[in-house]
């Protein structure tokens, strides 16, 4: 049965793209979670809604406008937050509601909700094209290389920003870089689980891995493992049981989280 599923081209593209996105989200998400930016991914995703609506309205491929709007708004909100000392959760709330509000207004102007809008809201991994797969693989490769090159500086500034700054690390630039990478990751991942569930991929595998992991690399590898397993199992289960892939992927990752919490409370893991 499994082998038969894997012989379909759309399933191969879904699994390859899904694995790449799972790796990307868990790696970028680990930095966001540890910097207490867990909901920032959610906020960027919601702001991308405005970008998608804009793209659909003016006839440009919606993901391109989503990249532009999400990255622009993420960088602007980070600058406003630094400048006016607005707390992290408040700035997330502003970004999140602004994105949804702009999207709703643009959609109502251009004639209401369509099937395209729903596929961005809830994900459509089984509809990923070959070009999308190549784009996802390319962006995943580039982002992972950037993170590997700046690994020590990123980990240090995440651990303690002040000390990293004293050690000569350009922490402010790294903050913008993380936000930038998160923006690209979120929009790239929208096709997998959709705008509404994207933060689950950033947060859940990482909070699960943190409960097991001792060192940073070990935690990152565990998180990648949980994310990849959730995505592959979620896609296959959704096909077998004819249910939505995005929700199934997130439910699998929540199941791993729940099992881990139970093991932790029973002292099976320390």
């Amino acid at each position: 049965m499994t082998l038969e599923i894997l012989s379909y081209g759309f399933m191969q593209r879904a699994i390859i793209s899904g694995i790449a996105i799972a790796i990307l989200c868990s790696v970028v998400g680990l930095f966001l979670v540890l910097r207490r930016y867990s909901l920032f991914g959610d906020a960027i995703a919601h702001s991308s809604f405005g970008g998608i609506a804009l793209g659909l309205m003016v006839g440009i491929y919606p993901l391109w406008t989503a990249y532009a709007v999400s990255l622009g708004s993420a960088l602007v909100i980070t600058r406003i937050r630094n400048r006016f000392k607005i707390s992290g959760d408040a700035s997330v709330a502003v970004l999140l509601s602004a994105g949804i509000a702009i999207g709703l207004v643009l959609i109502s102007v251009s004639g209401g909700f369509t099937i395209d809008i729903f596929s961005f809201l809830f994900g459509s991994i089984l509809l990923v094209s070959t070009n999308d797969t190549i784009l996802i693989l390319g962006l995943t490769g580039i982002i992972l290389v950037v993170i590997l090159l700046l690994y020590r500086q990123l980990v240090y500034s995440t651990f303690n920003e002040e000390q990293a700054k004293v050690s000569g690390i350009p922490t402010e630039k790294l903050n913008y870089l993380i936000i930038f990478l998160a923006g690209i990751t979120v929009v790239t991942s929208i096709q997998l689980v959709g705008i509404l569930l994207i933060s689950a991929l950033f947060v859940i595998p990482n909070v699960t891995a943190i409960m097991y992991g001792r060192g940073f690399k070990q935690t990152a590898l565990l998180s990648i493992g949980f994310a990849v397993f959730s995505v592959v199992a979620g896609i296959l289960a959704s096909y077998v049981f004819d249910i939505t892939p995005s929700g199934t992927i997130v439910l699998v990752s929540i199941a791993i989280f729940a099992i881990t919490m139970s093991m932790k409370s029973l002292n099976i893991i320390k």
Binding site: R152, Y156, A209, G215, F216
Partner: peptide, 11 residues
């Protein structure tokens, strides 16, 4: 998630 050695390696 950092061991003592991880923390030292950061610097």
């Amino acid at each position: 998630p950092a061991t003592v050695k991880d923390v030292i390696r950061m610097a």
